[in-house]
Deep mutational scan, measured.
Amino acid sequence: KVMEIKLIKGPKGLGFSIAGGVGNQHIPGDNSIYVTKIIEGGAAHKDGRLQIGDKILAVNSVGLEDVMHEDAVAALKNTYDVVYLKVAKP
């Protein structure tokens, strides 16, 4: 199931950690970017929809399929206060 989640960045950013990407696979044979941690009190935690194990398909208009881990981190960092995440639920 794919959904779009709109998050408003807090003082600590979006409030979640990711793993995965080309050269840094979270699941062997899979280059996808996965949510590995939700920080308590952060934007994602308060919103409640993003969960550990969700796959991040895109940030705003930037696709995160088959990208390097660093590029995924940069895509999440290089955002304004309002961030749209395209997410696939497991």
Rank of each mutant, 00 (worst) to 15 (best):
E4F: 14
P90K: 07
K37A: 15
E4K: 14
K12L: 10
I33D: 00
I8M: 13
L7G: 02
G41H: 11
V62S: 15
I39Q: 08
D30F: 04
S17R: 14
V2A: 05
N31K: 04
N78T: 14
I8N: 12
L50Q: 00
D54V: 03
N24L: 07
A43G: 06
K86G: 04
G23L: 08
I18C: 05
V62T: 12
G13D: 07
K89D: 04
V62I: 12
G10R: 05
S61H: 11
V59P: 00
Y84V: 10
E40N: 11
L7F: 12
G42S: 13
A75F: 10
A88F: 14
V73Q: 07
V22I: 06
P28M: 05
Y34C: 07
G13C: 08
L50N: 00
I52A: 14
Q51W: 06
D47N: 11
G29T: 09
D54I: 00
I33C: 05
K12M: 10
E65W: 08
G21R: 03
E65G: 14
E65H: 13
S32K: 06
G10T: 15
L14Q: 02
V87L: 11
I27R: 12
D54S: 07
K9E: 04
N24M: 12
I56D: 00
G21V: 02
N78V: 10
N60I: 00
S17M: 09
H69P: 14
Y84S: 14
L76E: 01
A75T: 13
I8K: 11
S61L: 09
K89A: 09
L7C: 03
V67W: 05
V87S: 03
D54F: 07
A88W: 08
I52P: 15
I5E: 00
H69D: 05
D66M: 08
G23R: 08
M68R: 10
G42H: 07
T79V: 11
L57C: 14
G63S: 09
Y34Q: 03
Q51P: 00
V62R: 14
D54Y: 10
L14A: 04
K86E: 11
D54P: 00
M68A: 14
E40F: 11
I52D: 10
V82I: 11
L57I: 14
G53T: 03
N60W: 01
I18W: 10
N24H: 15
E65I: 08
N60G: 12
V83K: 02
V2P: 03
E4N: 15
H45E: 15
T79A: 13
Y84C: 14
F16H: 00
L7S: 01
H45C: 15
G29E: 13
K37P: 00
M3H: 06
M3Y: 14
V83N: 06
L85C: 03
Q51H: 09
V62Y: 10
V82D: 13
G63R: 13
S32D: 09
T79I: 14
T36G: 05
Y80N: 08
K55E: 04
K55F: 02
G48R: 12
N60Y: 03
S61F: 13
E4A: 06
V87P: 01
L85Q: 01
A44F: 00
K89V: 08
V35Q: 00
A43Q: 14
K55V: 12
F16C: 03
G13Q: 04
T79C: 14
N78Y: 08
K37F: 07
Y34G: 00
L57Q: 12
A72S: 03
G13H: 04
D66Q: 14
V73L: 11
A43Y: 04
D66F: 09
G42Q: 11
L64V: 13
V22H: 13
A72L: 03
P28T: 15
I39A: 09
K1L: 03
E4D: 12
N31Q: 03
I38M: 11
K9H: 09
A43H: 05
